[in-house]
Design a binder for these strands. Structure first.
Lengths: 189, 189
DNA sequence: ACCTGAACACCGTTCAAGT
DNA sequence: ACCTGAACACCGTTCAAGT
């Protein structure tokens, strides 16, 4: 017979993981506190003990999760390589959880996301880019925009898997091409 | 005494206008069928008569509204001018209703939006761009991304109006610069 | 400290009924 | 044809209570 499991204690991390899974598999609109509770084998009200501001805090945390990227620029790279590393990492993080993309592109950065943004600025400056502010904004816009188009396109009918794979490969090639062009455009004149 | 107005008949257009107003002023999460009914001085259930699929149809319509752009390329412009006109028009339409930006960037294009996309492709081809597909995607990504960053930034504290104005002017300059760089990058080699 | 149960105000949607 | 009223299942959140 199925033995009752020793209940794993709830935690902020487990809550966020479960929420990401629901959002990615069923969509943001179906992510409710009650369904989230079910997934965690707990009553919905228990979540408020770990996320005091409730659903608002949950949404913030999800946006932060896919948006607070860390990059280690090994060696002494030139600034375009730093920029490339950041852009690729940010894109990968967003593509991993398309269900919360709307939050990531829309909520103003807070906490860890804001720190990541500051780090990016500093690393670009250290790598020799004089005025990193506009570059950070342009890279951010480019990454957010291309991921948005890429994810949108994957919802464009066409359930054929091989066609889908061809398009994600295409997405990556397009991304690198556009990134090259952008970096040239960002070079101080 | 306040005379009761002759009731203006409900219509799809009035519903969408009211919904845009609520989303822009109070946020998407506060746009409910009941509140929308109140704004239209009607019971919420009356809306279903004009939008049979209910809230889902409403969301689709809002995304379509800010995303189905029409551009008239007067004369015989070169393709970069056509591209510029599209990009500016699309940006303006999105900035007009920041409350539904999340929908616009996230919902797969349908109906009028899809037609607009096709028209854009055709106009670029007619203006001399050999393979407009990648260019349309890149322009779309660029516009969506820069508007997302711009709107996100406007929610970044700083309620000072003159600072805000300075930043929207800055947003426009940044946009034109990036657009120039992108168009150079899109030129057939 | 951590979780539950009951309760409240609010939500989307249906359907029969009114005009 | 167009709108309302009542009803249903579901939602976020509170609070007192359990352990």
């Amino acid at each position: 017979m199925p033995a009752k499991r020793p209940p794993v204690p709830l935690s902020r991390e487990r809550i966020i993981d479960a929420a990401l899974h629901i959002a990615d598999s069923q969509g943001l609109r179906r992510l409710t506190m009650r369904r989230l509770g079910d997934a965690l084998e707990v009553e919905a009200m228990a979540i408020y003990h770990h996320l005091p501001r409730g659903k608002e805090a949950l949404m913030d945390a999800l946006a932060e999760h896919v948006t607070s990227v860390r990059v280690d620029p090994g060696g002494l790279p030139a600034w375009p390589d730093v920029a490339r590393a950041w852009a690729r990492a940010a894109r990968a993080a967003l593509l991993e959880h398309p269900g919360v993309l709307a939050l990531a592109l829309t909520k103003p950065p807070k906490g860890a996301s804001l720190i990541a943004l500051r780090d990016q600025s500093e690393q670009l400056a250290e790598a020799g880019l004089p005025d990193p502010g506009p570059a950070v904004r342009a890279l951010r816009a480019y990454v957010h925009g291309s991921v948005a188009v890429e994810v949108q396109q994957s919802g464009w009918a066409d359930p054929d898997a091989t066609v889908r794979d061809a398009r994600t490969a295409e997405g990556e090639v397009d991304f690198e091409h556009g990134l090259d062009a952008l970096l040239i455009g960002l070079s101080p004149k």
